[in-house]
Amino acid sequence: MENNKDKVLEVKGLQTYFKTDSGVVKAVDGVSFDLYRGETLGIVGESGCGKSVTNLSIMKLIPSPPGKIVGGEVIFKGENIIALPEERLRSIRGNSISMIFQDPMTSLNPFLKISTQMVETIVLHQDMSKSEAKKKAIEMLTLVGIPAPEKRIDSYPHQFSGGMRQRVMIAMALSCNADVLIADEPTTALDVTIQAQILELIDELSKKLNTAVIMITHDLGVVAGMCDKVCVMYAGRIVEKALTEDLFGKPFHPYTSGLIQSVPRLDHATQEKLFSIEGQPPNLIDLPDCCPFHPRCHKAMDICRSKYPKLTEVEPGREVACWLYMDKGEDK
């Protein structure tokens, strides 16, 4: 990538565990990735694979108890967020790193006016008076395409449609010129027609404001359309990391290829039946030291059942955690 030096966020060996009645759930177990200014990173995987927990951990928003970040670092502008005191953390949240969530229906406070919710964020992080902040909020609403923002800003969330609410969320998230925007399945709860609009909006604004985006999704279509790089997650770990075109062009990990194959495609009319990966993702409690995907894998080998394959760079800029691409003798 051309702006290689401008690394805004670095996640190193992040581990987030949840204590439950039946044992410790290793929701995120050693996830690492880098994020560069202006780029869009996609994190894909089935539900429950730890994508959302990863991103809540970046903001240190894991509900604790039961959750706890037990290891790893999140380096943002040279500081480890995990180790920061609460106050410093608050000045980053919503300001340098902001988030938009899956369900716009419940993510906005239904008891407060849109203006109140937007203005409080701006006043908190920017050196502005309330009236200035309101002007800025209206400006942001215009930017995300809310019609008649001067009027609509004094409405309550329930007076907006789902798509409009997500626009408001985006406006709010970007109102402080964030360096990183984490979008946690931002379109899952929306109608298909609205989905495209919202994605386009995020894409356009992030380019305009030079914001790095982490796009969490289970929808490979979203990844293909928006992301520069992709991390594929399975059972709390990253199993493949690649540039988007490489990943779709030639998926390495059997799970990745399974995911890609299971997307219905019109140009593959010969396919009689939709492809699906058999079986269920594993229970994350007491996962044995093996490849967690091996029970569902066509190409599973002996070693897959006894040892976890580390994420290894197999081509420049391309990492995969699979024994198929590794020298088995080396580690044994």
């Binding site: 599973a300 002996d302 006894s306």
Partner: peptide, 20 residues
């Protein structure tokens, strides 16, 4: 160590940690 069995069906059920 686990026995070598590479048919898909047995592989799916190989994890003895499915939720009862």
């Amino acid at each position: 160590m686990a026995k070598v069995k590479s048919t898909k069906e047995t592989a799916v059920n190989e994890f003895d940690q499915e939720i009862k």
